[in-house]
């Protein structure tokens, strides 16, 4: 399963698949963007050795990767940025590279993340996704010129669902860690 995700960015090299997924705002934002991050993350998690150490030197506590993933995700939720990926190939390439790299960096840092930093990261993402989702749902005009008004609402709901899923996952992590502490004592 994880190998499938690691190889998944290759799918976007196939023009018709890429166009089909990017033609809908929901699959573009709620499916493709998270898949790119996840592919990078699962790849980065496997990285060992000197390169991993060199990355770790500039990513104490995973602070750099947390910052990177937060800012990059935020950037691609801006309506103008999403629109530009569809009218400009360099911008689209930047989208693929930035999201995958941010995921990759986070993957290399996963083992170094304390629960505190992880809570900060996921809390941030939940807040950001939920805010963007609500903005897309509440907007009274089309925010992206490439997408229809109805799609915008559905995508907003999708972002809210993503936020909820991440929030639940974080709670599960808290539960696990308190369980681990109890069983140690």
């Amino acid at each position: 399963m994880s190998w499938l995700f690691i190889a998944s960015p290759l799918v976007w090299l196939i023009g018709p698949v890429r166009h089909a997924v990017e033609a809908s705002m929901f699959s573009h934002m709620v499916l493709q963007l998270p898949m790119l991050v996840l592919a990078g993350l699962l790849t980065g998690r496997r990285l060992r050795g000197p390169i991993a150490n060199r990355i770790a030197a500039i990513d104490a506590f995973g602070l750099t990767s947390v910052l990177m993933i937060s800012t990059v995700s935020l950037a691609w939720m801006i309506p103008a940025a999403l629109d530009l990926t569809l009218v400009s190939s360099p911008v689209n390439l930047l989208k693929y590279v930035s999201l995958w790299s941010a995921g990759f960096l986070l993957g290399t840092a996963l083992r170094r993340l304390t629960l505190g930093v992880e809570t900060f990261l996921v809390g941030n993402l939940v807040w950001m996704l939920a805010t963007a989702g609500l903005l897309y749902i509440d907007a009274t005009t089309r925010l992206c010129v490439n997408y229809l008004f109805d799609e915008q609402r559905v995508s907003g709901l999708g972002l809210l669902a993503l936020a909820a899923a991440l929030g639940l996952r974080l709670m599960a992590r808290w539960h696990d860690s308190s369980h681990a502490v109890r069983s140690r004592s």
Partner: peptide, 20 residues
């Protein structure tokens, strides 16, 4: 080194988004 890298990341992203 981490703090310096973070500062560079912030500067880059803010610069790009500000431009956009």
């Amino acid at each position: 080194p981490t703090l310096v890298t973070c500062a560079i990341v912030v500067a880059l992203v803010v610069g790009l988004l500000g431009h956009l």
